[in-house]
């Protein structure tokens, strides 16, 4: 555990579990929701297991996150639950998943279908605590993004726009920045860093 680079403020929590792991280039913080299209048989199987169990973990994978970087930084994932599913025009299963919390992945095993399972522990991140402070402009600007994008808007029936952590987390998810930078907002940077970053892009 000492080899992980943890940003100050990240603490291990009690909960341990073995969960399916889904490697995806998707950055999701607690309370974040995204739609996924599932077509590979092994992931269909995983989804069906996940619905009767405790969900699964999206492990942020991207070519930009280089091998040596992931060796030194913490392998973390977004523990999600399936909140809705539907079928696309083309008949492909679409699921909406919502992040419950972040987890650290301690070990990974494969089963006969080449499905990954990981031993995980929950970690705390600023984005899973709630702070009811209206951060005016960031909230308003985010509200506009929702209003302008139906498909995003529909994912969030409940928008906690008066929670500065919630607002900031959603901004980090949707801003056009490389995934390795987003990754760093979990493993390296604090809430303050993240806030300063988003503000300098959105406000100024």
């Amino acid at each position: 555990m000492n080899s992980y680079k943890l940003a100050s403020g990240i603490v291990m929590k009690e909960l341990n579990a073995t969960l399916p792991i889904f490697p995806l280039p998707v950055f999701l913080l607690p309370e974040g929701v995204t739609k996924l299209r599932i077509f590979e048989p092994r992931y269909l199987k995983m989804v069906s297991t996940a619905t009767s169990g405790q969900g699964f973990v999206i492990w942020l994978q991207d070519i930009k996150i280089s091998a040596n970087e992931s060796a030194t930084s913490m392998p973390w994932g977004s523990w999600v639950e399936i909140i809705n599913f539907d079928q696309g025009d083309d008949g492909i299963l679409e699921i909406d998943v919502k992040c419950k919390s972040l987890v650290v992945i301690k070990s990974i095993a494969h089963d006969e279908n080449n499905l990954h399972f990981g031993d995980v522990s929950r970690i705390a991140h600023w984005s899973d605590t709630h702070v009811n402070i209206t951060n005016g402009q960031l909230s308003r600007s985010l509200a506009n993004v929702f209003a302008e994008n139906d498909s995003l808007n529909n994912l969030y029936p409940k928008k906690v726009l008066n929670d500065s952590h919630w607002v900031l987390a959603r901004w980090l998810e949707i801003l056009p920045i490389e995934l390795n930078v987003k990754n760093a907002f979990v493993v390296s940077y604090s809430f303050k860093d993240a806030k300063a970053f988003v503000e300098s892009v959105i406000l100024e």
Binding site: V145, L155, P176
Partner: peptide, 22 residues
């Protein structure tokens, strides 16, 4: 607008979208 997002799910803004937004 609905046609454009068909099959594409909003996950991240493009730099162009951000420019329009701001």
């Amino acid at each position: 607008q609905q046609d454009v997002v068909k099959g594409f799910y909003f996950r991240e803004m493009s730099q162009e979208q951000l420019a329009v937004h701001l």
